[in-house]
């Protein structure tokens, strides 16, 4: 075996070891279970729908449940000992967060406006359903991208 062959074999072994560890790392990152994402999406959608329809009786309990679900998701990541790498830059994330808050209030105000001025009683619920489906789609696409990354690492 030539020196070049030995060097190449060592390099291949190092690459194999890198793939193995990258795969082990990704295996540790459990994506947010889809059912947890579905419940969170449903809670936020319901809250927007109810506030849009000006039904405030369940608002406090919904907020408490949303906070509990969010804490559960954060705690799950902490106890796993790893956190997934977010490929978006910090700036993009801040912009996304800044955009989400007005969108949330806009959804509620739109529901209230359509309900009060045009008597579209179904409008707040349609907006709530739209928000639920949007959040659910985000959860599913995040889940898919994780599975793709995991399979890439495996190959």
């Amino acid at each position: 075996m030539t020196k070049k062959e030995i060097k190449s074999r060592e390099a291949q072994e190092a690459l194999d070891s890198i793939n193995e560890m990258e795969h082990a790392g990704l295996k540790r990152v459990l994506p947010t279970p889809r059912w947890l994402g579905a419940i969170l999406a449903l809670l936020i959608g319901t809250q927007i729908a109810l506030l849009g329809a000006e039904i405030r009786n369940y608002n406090t309990i919904l907020i408490v449940l949303i906070v509990i679900m969010t804490i559960a998701i954060i705690n799950k990541n902490q106890s796993a000992g790893v956190t997934e790498r977010i490929l978006l830059s910090k700036r993009t994330l801040i912009i996304c967060l800044i955009c989400i808050i007005p969108i949330y209030f806009l959804a509620i105000i739109s529901g209230q406006y359509l309900n009060n001025h045009f008597e579209y009683y179904w409008a707040p619920f349609a907006i709530g359903a739209f928000v639920t489906i949007s959040i659910w789609s985000l959860v599913v696409s995040a889940h898919r991208s994780y599975i793709n990354r995991f399979n890439e690492g495996k190959n």
């Binding site: 190092a14 070891s17 890198i18 793939n19 193995e20 560890m21 990258e22 082990a24 790392g25 990704l26 540790r28 990152v29 000992g81 790893v82 956190t83 997934e84 790498r85 977010i86 990354r149 690492g153």
Partner: peptide, 15 residues
């Protein structure tokens, strides 16, 4: 060290 870097590379942070 190669394994440490490989483990950290696809993740944000690891305990």
């Amino acid at each position: 060290r190669l394994q440490i870097c490989a483990l950290l590379s696809p993740l944000e942070q690891v305990e």
